[in-house]
Design a protein around this nucleic acid. Structure first.
Length: 465
RNA sequence: GGCCCCAUAGUCUAGAGGCCUAGGACACCAGGUUCUCAUCCUGGCAACACGGGUUCGAAUCCCGUUGGGGUCACCA
């Protein structure tokens, strides 16, 4: 049975796009294998806890259609799915580890820890805890009984090669000399990530730990824990980290990173996911645009490349445009109406405008730039009409005389005016375009005029005379 | 800095020893279609980081160098 999970922390505004990527891969992998996808909230850091973040994460995942089978809202057989509600579980295993000699109490102060680290760095050694408390456990236990603060540390054996097989990278080996005696339980009674992740992944029956590459170097700690508790290892797959254009880890300083930002900018969730799926992975037939269902069909973890890809919003934008172009008109109208629900655009006009704007929009947000003039009269004009009033009058007269108000007729009649006035078509229509819309760049003019209606067009011209 | 991961055009990638004169996509440039823009079509620019091996033959395998990234918390 395949069981995958993502473990977001409610420490930001929303789910990070990199986590969304990880979530998508986990979700697809579980779904394609008839498995279960779990969302577990890792809220063990109460100092960085952001209230409301958890709800936001769930909302965003839902907006992208990544729906968990088990999680805080829906429950499941292995709950609770919020780590802050599992404290007694971690405590129990921490005690087991201590009784097995795999972990120990530590009462060192932050000052001493800093001091030790400093000294080691000065000696150019690897900065890590010196196991001072390990040798004096009886003494430490006594001070703890008097109420002093303590943590529980993993007792990392020296000079041992920890080896694991990563689905994406193959064999990875790290010597324990490079690993610190990781704190497992913090002084506030909460577990650290390393403790909680191992216990929960095991208890929740996670078969595949699919997470970002940044976790590779701490995986040996986790393996030590699995071994200490005599648990079977899950399969590990470390996904590449999405990068900024300067190749550093994708960060909010250099890129929009919140999943909901993309939605609010008018990107379609399916397009974002499609783009994300191309990060480190390619379709066996080199297709670029494909549905979730198709991705699910052909996806394999093995095909993921270990290189960290740069997140290119330009290509995402292009892809989003492709999705918009391929969308059914009715569906696009619905999406536009929904995206602009506050603007209260006239439904009929939106529906009629869709064929005109569809291949001009890259994002839903583009609609306003392109089609606003269909709803409001222009206030600024990208052309000066002061010496064109005569022609304008001719245009208005002709507009008023048209009986069959429909794009083709409008075009023909306007051409007649241009010919009569001896104005080249390109110049004439540019003038008319700006007179109607205020702008030099618009959707097809005749069709736009048809949508606006005869009276409105006539009025717009009249306003300029 | 130690450890770990990685290395095909500006970017995403195909490529698992001869099919490679290295293919596709985005971006960019030029041209065509067009009353603007967009779409669409045609063409173009542009890469196997470097050095050693192995082999009849290497973008593909091995080693080294260089470069990039990640990680070294009572954060995840």
């Amino acid at each position: 049975m395949i069981r995958t999970r993502i473990a977001p922390s409610p420490t930001g505004e929303d789910i990070h796009i990199g986590n969304l990527y990880t979530a998508y891969i986990n979700w697809v992998y579980a779904k394609k294998n008839g498995g279960t996808f779990i969302v577990r909230i890792e809220d063990t850091d109460r100092t960085r806890y952001v209230s409301g973040a958890e709800e936001k994460i769930h909302q965003s995942l839902k907006a992208y259609g990544i729906v968990p089978d088990e999680g805080v809202d829906i429950g499941g057989p292995f709950g609770p799915y919020r780590q802050s509600e599992r404290l007694d579980i971690y405590k129990k295993y921490a005690e087991e580890l201590i009784s097995k000699g795999k972990a120990y109490y530590c009462t060192c102060t932050k000052e001493r820890l800093d001091q030790v680290r400093k000294e080691m760095q000065a000696k150019k050694e690897i900065p890590k805890y010196d196991k001072y408390c390990l040798s004096r456990q009886d003494e430490v236990k006594k001070t703890i009984e008097t109420g002093s603060n303590y943590v529980i540390r993993l007792n990392v054996p020296s000079d041992t090669e920890v080896v694991f097989e990563d689905v994406i990278r193959g064999k990875v080996a790290i010597n324990t000399n490079n690993i610190d005696d990781q704190v497992l339980m913090k002084s506030d009674g909460y577990p650290t990530y390393h403790m909680a992740v191992v216990i929960d992944d095991h208890l929740m029956g996670i078969s595949h730990v699919i997470r970002a590459e940044e976790w590779i170097s701490s995986t040996p700690k986790h393996i030590l824990l699995y071994q200490a508790l005599e648990w079977e290892l899950p399969i590990f797959a470390h996904l590449p980290i999405l990068r900024n254009p300067d190749k550093s880890k994708l960060s909010k300083r250099k890129n929009p990173v919140w999943a909901s930002w993309y939605v609010s900018e008018g990107f379609l969730p399916e397009a974002v996911l499609n783009y994300l799926s191309l990060m480190g992975w390619s379709h066996p037939e080199e297709k670029e645009i494909f549905s979730k269902e198709e991705f699910m069909r052909v996806f394999t973890l093995e095909r993921i490349q270990p290189v960290g890809p740069v997140f290119d919003i330009k290509k995402l934008t292009w892809m989003n445009g492709q999705y918009i172009m391929q969308m059914q008109d009715e569906e696009l109208a619905k999406q536009i109406l929904d995206f602009y629900k506050d603007a209260n655009f006239d439904k009929n006009i939106v529906e009629r405008s869709v064929p005109l704007v569809k291949e001009r929009m890259k994002t839903l947000k583009d609609y306003e730039n392109i089609a606003l003039f269909l709803f409001e009269r222009p206030t600024v004009y990208e052309l000066d009409f002061s010496d064109k009033k005569d022609t304008l009058r001719k245009i208005k007269e002709r507009i008023d005389s048209i009986e069959d108000w429909e794009a083709a007729t409008i075009g023909e009649e306007m051409q007649k005016v241009a010919t009569k006035e001896q104005i080249p078509f390109s110049k004439f229509f540019m003038m008319l375009r700006v007179a109607i819309s205020g702008k030099k760049i618009t959707p097809p003019l005749n069709e736009s005029m048809e949508i606006l209606g005869k009276e409105e067009c006539s009025a717009r011209i009249y306003n300029l005379i």
